[in-house]
Simulated scan of single mutants.
Amino acid sequence: MLRPYRSVLYIPGSKERALEKARDLAVDAIIFDLEDAVAPDEKAAARATLARFLAEVDYGPRARIVRINGFDTEWGRADAAAFADHPGVDAILVPKVNGPADLDAVAAVTGEMPLWAMMETALGMLNAAAIAAHPRLEGMVMGTNDLAKELGSRFRADRMPLMTGLGLCLLAAKASGRVIVDGVYNAFKDEAGLAAECAQGRDMGFDGKTLIHPAQVEITNEAFAPSEAEVDLARRQIEAFNAAQAQGQGVAVLDGRIVENLHVVTAQAVLAKMEAIRAQAMTAERIAVGAE
Rank of each mutant, 00 (worst) to 15 (best):
M118L: 13
D207F: 06
G183A: 08
D24V: 00
V231L: 07
D146P: 10
S227K: 01
A132P: 07
E112H: 07
V231G: 01
K174E: 13
V264Y: 06
G256C: 12
D79A: 12
A44E: 15
C169Q: 08
M163T: 07
R77S: 11
A132L: 03
E56R: 11
D158K: 05
P12Y: 12
L103R: 01
R47H: 09
G256S: 13
C169R: 00
F188V: 15
L137F: 04
G193R: 02
T49K: 06
L194F: 08
R3P: 06
H213R: 04
A288Y: 04
A195P: 09
A269R: 12
A84K: 00
D255L: 03
F224V: 04
Q247P: 02
S227Y: 05
P100H: 05
G208R: 00
I277N: 00
L19A: 06
N69M: 13
A279V: 07
N127D: 11
W75V: 09
N242W: 00
D203I: 03
L19Y: 04
G165R: 01
L123I: 13
Y10H: 12
T49P: 00
D36Q: 10
A246F: 03
S176K: 01
M140L: 15
T283V: 13
G111C: 07
P40M: 06
M1P: 13
R136F: 00
L103M: 03
A215S: 15
A240K: 06
A246I: 02
V270N: 14
R236D: 15
V217G: 08
P61Q: 02
F32Y: 13
D190T: 01
G205H: 10
H213A: 14
G250M: 09
K149A: 14
N145T: 10
H134N: 08
G88Q: 02
G208F: 01
E218P: 05
K189Y: 13
V251Q: 10
Q247M: 15
V94L: 06
A46H: 07
A229P: 08
R47S: 15
A272V: 04
K15L: 14
I65G: 12
A39V: 02
K15D: 15
V217T: 11
N261E: 13
D79P: 08
